[in-house]
């Protein structure tokens, strides 16, 4: 599914391309595998990322250098774009900022 901004806020990408929005129960996309710090790959082929909890129930993903890459809000999404990098979004933020692109 593709999304475009309802208005304009340049902190966020104008559009979200298919595959650039990820939530935790889905298999990780390549952009997260490329930039996140992976601790191990399980026997079944699942990636385990280096994360730590934040104070709001979210998860801070570490970068390969060990610093914070992005914070995944509780029940939220990570969003990727070339220009803006990886950004965390709550479900509500997604609905307020974006609409489906038809």
């Amino acid at each position: 599914m593709k999304y475009k901004q309802r208005g304009e806020y340049n902190k966020y990408p104008k559009e979200i391309e298919e595959g650039n929005l990820w939530r935790i129960n889905e298999s990780p996309p390549q952009w997260l595998i490329d930039q996140g710090k992976i601790i191990k790959i399980t026997e079944s082929g699942e990636y385990v990322f280096d994360t730590s909890p934040d104070s709001n129930g979210g998860l801070i993903f570490k970068s390969q250098r060990g610093g914070a890459l992005a914070t995944l809000p509780k029940d939220g999404y990570l969003l990727y774009s070339k220009e803006k990098g990886i950004i965390g979004l709550t479900e509500k933020q997604l609905n307020l900022l974006y609409e489906e692109k038809k």
């Binding site: 309802r6 208005g7 304009e8 806020y9 340049n10 902190k11 609905n95 307020l96």
Partner: peptide, 9 residues
Amino acid sequence: DTKIRVYIL
């Protein structure tokens, strides 16, 4: 449901 389009400057 939001009925506004927001532009942040």
